[in-house]
Amino acid sequence: MTALLNVDVLLDDLERNLRRVLQEREVDRPALIGIRTGGVWLADILHKRLGLDEPFGELDISFYRDDFSRIGLNPKVRPSHLPFETEDRHIVLIDDVIMSGRTIRAAMNEIFDYGRPASVILATLIDLGARELPIQPDVVGQSLALKASERVKLQGPDPLSVEVRKADVTSEGA
C-alpha cells in the first residue's frame, strides 16, 4: 500500500525556506551540492528555481560510508563531481530524506576533502526524525513521523514523486 505526498507543495516549501535562510545569512552566491541520487534531482530543481549561473555539484558518498565493513563497497559508485572550488564558499548541501544523519556525516567529510568551505547549509525535502547523530537540517520541505512499518521513497527525476509505503524491503536509514 502506498500513499503519495504532493511533491509540488513540498518543493515550494523547500524553496521558500531555503531563500529565507540564505537571506538571513546574507548568502548571495551559494554553491549547491546534491547527494546522489535523490539529492541531485532536488539540487537540479533548486538550481533552476534560484536561477544560479554556476553549475551545481554532485556527491557520491560511497567511499565515506561508515558501514563499509558491513555492507561493502557500492558496486555502482560513480565519480563525485564538484565543478567549483569549495574553499571559503557557502555550500548548500541537498538530500532527499534525512533520518539517522549518517549520510550527511559522510557527505560533510567528503566536502571537506575538497577544501574548507565558509559554511554549509543543509536542505532536505523530508525530515523523518529518528536521528542517530547530532545533525539537523537548516531547511526542510516537510517533517514526517512514520510508523515503524513505513518507508518513504523519492522517485524521479521526471516526474518527481514521494511515496510512503509499507516496508517490504529494509532500506538503510538516510
Binding site: F63, S80, H81, D113, Y114
Partner: peptide, 15 residues
Amino acid sequence: SFIEVGERRIKKVPL
C-alpha cells in the same frame, strides 16, 4: 571514481 578522488586537495578516502 578514484581518479576523481586523486584530483582533490586531500586525495584520501577512509575505506
